[in-house]
Simulated scan of single mutants.
Amino acid sequence: MKEIKEIMDMGRRLDELAYETYTLFSKREDFDRPLVAFWAGMAEWKKNHLKHWKKVSRTYVYKNLFNREPEDLKVIIKQLKNIQSEHVEFMRRLRKKRIGQDEAISQTILNEFCLITDIFLEIFYTYDESLQDRSCSFVEDCEMHLVTMANALKPYLKLNPLYAVLLRSIVDLKHKYDFLLTTFGKMKKAAG
């Protein structure tokens, strides 16, 4: 299905942009040292995430676990294109050093928020299910990094409404992942 391939290509591209963003944040001397260290770690995670995208794109078979119509996929593509355009514009300003620390923090949340949408959760989950090595989970790795991100950014987000969005997203991710596991995955197979 060409829409899924396009969505996966866009997910990889968004992660490439996030990797570059975090790398540039980690080199800023005018940002707080703990945040610089946090962004260096996020850049390293994104670098590894990009390796997963290559594996996923070679093996992924769309199963439509959330019963999407073809029109739903077209809407997702349109949304991802908008996110990508906004991120490219952000990168243009970042390269000119026109981004302050508060905006960098907000952009970090926006970068990760778009990658925990249902479609990416489904792609990562299906990829995890296809692996022989069950000791690692792409979805659980993402969830762990979101929690780490929430903890690292918490002192800087006291009045920022994006923090509540981030926390809610983590809870939603966990519930949707549990649904996939109990409906389609290992837990259902173990119970059956």
Rank of each mutant, 00 (worst) to 15 (best):
E143N: 06
K97L: 11
V139N: 03
L24Q: 10
L131I: 06
Y177I: 02
K55V: 02
F66E: 10
F124L: 08
M187W: 13
N48W: 04
S137H: 09
A191L: 13
F66N: 14
G192H: 02
V75L: 12
I105L: 08
Y163T: 04
V165F: 07
P34I: 10
K188N: 06
Q84N: 11
L180I: 10
M8F: 03
W53R: 09
V147K: 11
I77T: 07
T126D: 08
L159V: 02
N82K: 13
L110M: 11
I119Y: 03
D72H: 12
W53L: 05
Y19M: 09
M187R: 13
H145R: 15
K2Q: 13
K189N: 11
E20G: 02
W45K: 08
K81E: 14
K81P: 00
F38N: 04
I99M: 04
K154G: 04
H49Y: 14
E71V: 13
E44P: 03
I119H: 00
L17N: 02
Q79P: 00
D128N: 05
Q107K: 12
N151Y: 06
G41Y: 08
F66I: 04
K74F: 04
E86A: 09
I83P: 01
V171S: 05
I7K: 04
R58H: 06
C142W: 00
L173Y: 08
R28Y: 06
L80Q: 07
E140Q: 15
L50W: 04
K188W: 07
F138N: 07
A190L: 14
Y127S: 03
H145Q: 15
